[in-house]
């Protein structure tokens, strides 16, 4: 491209940048709350989540949070378990909480499912073992992934005690139902997982799963803010976390 062409192009992009949002909105290209919001970013000191399984179980078979997350993050859908990729999903109660084994547990609870996702541990083993720092813990506690640095050694998958990580065993793009353009798709050979919707927090939006839940069973908040709804819930309810004996300090709290 010559110099004049370059100037023309940069000029045009800045005009589109200025008028972009109203134009895109008018054209109906933006779904509500998806991109280019003017909201200030949501910041916290230590992000965490409460999962109220009682509320979650109100609507059995509901997959709203899973669908919302997997859609906006371009998570592919394979028909075979071998290639499977998932960021948030449901597991049987005793599989999610093996240390709560109890043959005579409350009627029906055994067969019920609970939501599981990355625990965004305070002491994450996946971060410790990564040989390239492609996964790391942010100041605000979010365990992040760099899909461009990951070499695909899968050491983090061996280290995660919660099975929260997935690997792209093959090109995921043909298996994405509907590609969302403002979130990257991944290439084969890299690991991925939930990132607590850090891209939405930066735009002032709460995580997609929290927003999508019809029962308000998922509560996202700052652990270091004593006034937060999250802290209030933890104060008044009995809650527990997965596999705390391993010292990972998971930041997902379950109310049963």
């Amino acid at each position: 491209m010559d110099r004049r062409g370059f100037i023309r192009l940069t000029g045009m992009t800045s005009v589109v940048g200025l008028l972009g949002k109203p134009i895109l909105n008018a054209a109906g290209l933006l779904r509500p709350g998806e991109a280019l919001t003017n909201k200030p970013p949501i910041v916290g000191k230590r992000w965490a989540m409460v999962i109220d399984t009682r509320k979650c179980l109100e609507k059995e078979g509901c997959r709203d949070c899973i669908n919302a997350c997997h859609h906006i993050h371009n998570v592919p859908e394979f028909d075979n378990a071998k290639d499977e990729i998932k960021w948030i999903w449901k597991e049987k109660y005793e599989q999610a909480f093996p240390e709560q084994e109890n043959e005579y547990i409350e009627d029906g609870l055994k067969e019920k499912s609970v939501l599981v996702l990355c625990n965004h541990c305070d002491n994450p083993p996946c971060v410790r073992v990564c040989p390239t720092q492609a996964t790391w813990k942010r100041e605000d506690g979010i365990v992040m992934m760099d899909w461009h640095r990951c070499i695909g050694c899968r050491y983090c998958m061996a280290a995660c005690p919660y099975g929260s990580r997935s690997f792209n065993w093959r090109d995921p793009r043909p298996f994405i139902k509907e590609i969302v353009t403002d979130f990257p798709t991944r290439t084969r050979g890299v690991v991925e997982k939930c990132t607590f919707c850090e891209e939405r927090l930066a735009k002032g939006l709460i995580p997609a799963c929290v927003e999508a839940c019809p029962e308000k069973a998922l509560i996202f908040g700052d652990l270091e803010d004593p006034q937060s709804e999250l802290r209030e819930l933890l104060r008044v309810h009995f809650s527990f976390r997965r596999k705390t004996n391993l010292g990972t300090q998971p930041e997902l709290y379950y109310i049963v």
């Binding site: 073992v129 720092q133 492609a134 070499i151």
Partner: peptide, 21 residues
């Protein structure tokens, strides 16, 4: 065994002494 063998040198470019690898 690497998913992205062309990126193998990332181990040298971003040395991570906490990793046993």
């Amino acid at each position: 065994d690497l998913g992205q063998p062309m990126r193998a040198l990332n181990m040298v470019l971003h040395p991570s002494p906490k990793s046993v690898l």
